[in-house]
């Protein structure tokens, strides 16, 4: 940093100040910064498989599921059954995409990248935050695509404001599954994470009142209300159904805390060499 000749007496001292801990700053936000997010975003968009998965799969699923039920036009809250199904499918799609985005950490782990990051000031929380943010972004793409599919199909019916509110809530709710994806990505080696999450999320969707309606107040309902899909599904459909119980909110918050905590815990312990 200083190329000019130094007096002999200070020459040795001049070499060391940079190595003095007092002169070193710890980054703000645990290392979180725009360059990091920008590069990570570019990585995601460069991966064609991920992008196709987010753009095509959830809307295709919607067309397959929400085809020709004769009760499609029955009313639910301020809209119809078709709208209810669309919101549910958007949630499932967002959860799946967000989770798959989150599992990217599994691959990074197998490459030793997470170990490399442990040798930088980047805090585990900041790292998870970036991964989660990008996963939610992919979730948003999925939600948008399912809603576009709904518009194209023409059966879902609800006020425009409700439509938008549901979509936004769904995107926010996909956060829970982004965190789950990161967590599972750490627990399961390599590319196997999605093989667990794919069927796992489908199962949780059945259990959690996403795919098939569960009658409120039954034993099944109370079982469902403890599973991770239940709370977020209720929240996502709230603008439509105008019904939201406190335990649904508690469910969503609690599962988010479990998944975020689990992901951070696994990363802080993840130092394995490859």
């Amino acid at each position: 940093m200083n190329d000019t000749a130094l007096p002999a007496a200070s020459a040795t001292a001049a070499a060391t100040p940079g190595f003095d801990p007092a002169t070193r700053a710890v980054p703000r936000w645990g290392g979180l910064n725009r360059t990091l997010v920008g590069i990570e975003l570019r990585r995601v968009l460069r991966n064609r498989r991920t992008v196709i998965f987010a753009f095509v799969f959830p809307s295709a699923l919607f067309f397959a599921f929400a085809g020709s039920q004769d009760y499609a036009n029955e009313s639910v809250g301020v809209g119809n059954v078709s709208a209810y199904i669309m919101v549910s499918m958007a949630l499932y799609g967002a959860a799946l995409t967000a989770a798959s985005g989150g599992t990217a950490v599994a691959l990074e782990r197998s490459l030793g990248w997470s170990r490399q990051l442990r040798l930088t000031p980047l805090s585990p929380v900041s790292y998870i935050l970036v991964k989660t943010l990008l996963a939610v972004l992919l979730g948003a793409v999925a939600v948008t695509m399912v809603n576009v599919a709904g518009l194209v199909q023409g059966k879902p019916d609800m006020p425009a404001a409700t439509w938008v509110a549901c979509a936004l809530l769904t995107v926010v709710c996909s956060l829970v599954f982004a965190a789950l994806g990161v967590f599972v990505g750490y627990l399961v080696p390599g590319e196997n994470a999605m093989q667990i999450l794919g069927p796992g999320l489908a199962l949780l969707s059945f259990l959690g009142n996403v795919f098939i309606p569960i009658t409120k107040g039954t034993t099944m309902w109370w079982v469902a209300s403890t599973t991770p899909m239940f709370g977020v599904a209720e929240i996502s459909r709230w603008p439509l159904t105008r019904e939201l119980d406190w335990y649904s909110v508690l469910n969503a918050v609690a599962w988010l805390a479990v998944f975020v905590g689990g992901a951070a815990w696994r990363m802080s312990r993840d130092t394995a060499r490859v």
Binding site: P21, R24, G112, W113, Q116, L119, T120, P121
Partner: peptide, 14 residues
């Protein structure tokens, strides 16, 4: 504080 770093033999790159 960036005071210590390491170079490993393999891995650690995306």
């Amino acid at each position: 504080r960036g005071l210590v770093s390491a170079v490993m033999q393999s891995g650690g790159l995306l």
